[in-house]
Amino acid sequence: MRIAVPRITILNDGEYKLAIAHYPLETTGECVKKLLETMRLSSCSSPLCYPKIFGGIFLFNGFNPIWRGEYDGFFKVSREGACADDRPRFMSKIEEGKDTCLKIEEGIVEFLSSCESCTRVDPIGLRMIVD
């Protein structure tokens, strides 16, 4: 059996953390090892396993997942620029599949439907292939 999970980028927004599942996929690591050994999703005990298993964009309050959005597009983080979207508007736009942004501690994260120099969001998560 082969397992692939997305990579995760974690960004800080005050007391919140934004976890983005994205390409390229990885076939090694602690999460993959636990899943291969046990064949149980519950074996991945870290809350940050949620984006690896389910894909998409997660918002955590501490280590508690409070929101998940699917987005078929790209993201990039930049240190400069302006963003008029607050957290609720950001979440709403993600759910609608619209371009949006969010001011974070690292700068601005932008989600775009097309972008040549950006990273592709993985809305799927865990993939398993039985060989």
Rank of each mutant, 00 (worst) to 15 (best):
S43K: 00
S43A: 11
C44Y: 04
C44V: 07
C44G: 08
S45E: 13
S45I: 11
S46R: 12
P47E: 11
L48T: 10
C49Q: 09
C49W: 07
C49V: 08
Y50H: 09
Y50I: 04
P51I: 05
I53R: 01
I53C: 00
I53N: 00
I53M: 06
I53P: 00
F54G: 02
F54S: 03
G55T: 00
G55C: 02
G56E: 04
G56H: 03
I57T: 04
I57F: 06
I57R: 03
I57E: 06
I57C: 07
F58Y: 15
F58T: 06
F58Q: 05
L59H: 05
L59R: 05
L59M: 10
N61G: 03
N61M: 07
G62F: 05
F63D: 15
F63I: 13
N64S: 09
N64G: 02
P65W: 02
P65D: 03
I66R: 08
R68S: 03
R68Y: 03
G69Q: 03
E70D: 06
E70R: 05
Y71I: 01
G73C: 04
F74C: 04
F74S: 02
F74R: 01
F75D: 02
F75G: 01
F75E: 02
K76N: 10
K76L: 13
V77M: 08
S78W: 06
R79A: 14
G81T: 09
G81R: 09
C83N: 13
C83G: 13
C83E: 13
C83A: 13
C83I: 13
A84F: 12
A84R: 15
D85S: 14
D86T: 09
D86H: 07
D86R: 09
R87Q: 12
P88N: 12
P88L: 10
P88I: 10
R89M: 11
R89E: 15
F90W: 12
M91R: 11
M91N: 08
S92D: 14
K93R: 15
E95I: 07
E96F: 08
E96N: 14
G97S: 07
D99P: 02
